[in-house]
Design a protein around this nucleic acid. Sequence first.
DNA 1: GTCAATGATTTGAC
DNA 2: GTCAAATCATTGAC
Length: 407
Amino acid sequence: MCGARPPAWRRLAGGGDEGWGLGMRARSARVEVVGEVLQQIMAITDQSLEEAQARKHALNCHRMKPALFSVLCEIKEKTVLSIHGIQEEGPPNAQLMRLDNMLLAEGVSRPERRGRGGSAAAANTATPGGCPNDNSLEHSDYRAKLSQIRQIYHSELEKYEQACHEFTTHVTNLLREQSRMRPVSPKEIERMVGVIHGKFNAIQMQLKQSTCEAVMTLRSRFLDARRKRRNFSKQATEVLNEYFYSHLSNPYPSEEAKEELARRGGITVSQVSNWFGNKRIRYKKNMGKFQEEATIYTTKMAVDTTKIGGLGSQASCPSTPSSACPHQGSGGKAGCDSAAPLSPSAGSWLLFWVLLEGCGGWTGHPGPSDAQSLSFQAQGSWQGATPPVSTASPAGDPGGINSDASN
DNA sequence: GTCAATGATTTGAC
DNA sequence: GTCAAATCATTGAC
């Protein structure tokens, strides 16, 4: 009536162009044939390989095969259309990208390098204080554990990739083989490979997630260890204090000075910076408390001075340590006493003024006495002043660690 | 256990 | 980037 071709399954079952009205006898004979073919297909899995191959060959040569194939094609077409939408791949996984970036940043994704690798460099920036040997132990421990994590990660990753490759090859071959029996387009194979890769990627993501967690745990443990404070050695404290009190007018060591102090104290430059930051703020907050310490160090330095020749050796700049020194500019960079890190003259003059107790302070102004004479400098010079000398040594200060010539 | 000292970290200004 | 200031966290003396 409508003239449309009946569906393939109906044609196969006897409902061809000649109509659905054939005799029951002919129809039932064809149904039997179809049933037989289907039975043979279903029975393939129960057979031995040789037997199955033979059966398969027989099926391929079967006269009904083209018709059956066309039925399968039609069903497949409908099925694929209905499931096509849900198998579309989403956008690149943001979480996976984050994990990749993190693993790269932590040096896990990269192949391991000998010597001071990325993790070592990272660890190197945070050196616990006071005990270099312990530091290196902690660092090597950290590096060893990170290396372990890296090895496990790469080994597992390799396994997954290999398994993925093997499985993909297997499924591709299988689908190609099946394409002789059922409609399997290259695009379908491609999509199936994509699905397999997607599944393995999910597994890989789990692996990456676990690795990230392991690194984070290790890192936090390392950072916790770093936060454990150790007091500096006596030598380090002395070196720092000597510099501080001999440069009290301008306690901002240059980079070179910091490096030298770090070297002499057996600590890091960062620790020197921390120490000076703490010292400045604490000194300023409680100058009275530090007066005794200041006296001790200035006395010590004065003694050292006399040992190496006394005040006379410093006569090249007979000035007060601070602005009274004619050589000292406002930045305190050019002038006398530029060569010695812990200048004898600085110590001497500091002692001199401490002993004088408030004879006007280092700036020459009438000022407070005692501890306040020291604090004056802090209030007058440190605050609001240019953080003076930490960046570059002046041309007049080529040799020493001290770029602060104000002392 | 308490507490002062002190090294390290964080925050915000420059 | 450095710095001051506040704060955290640990050490060590008591």
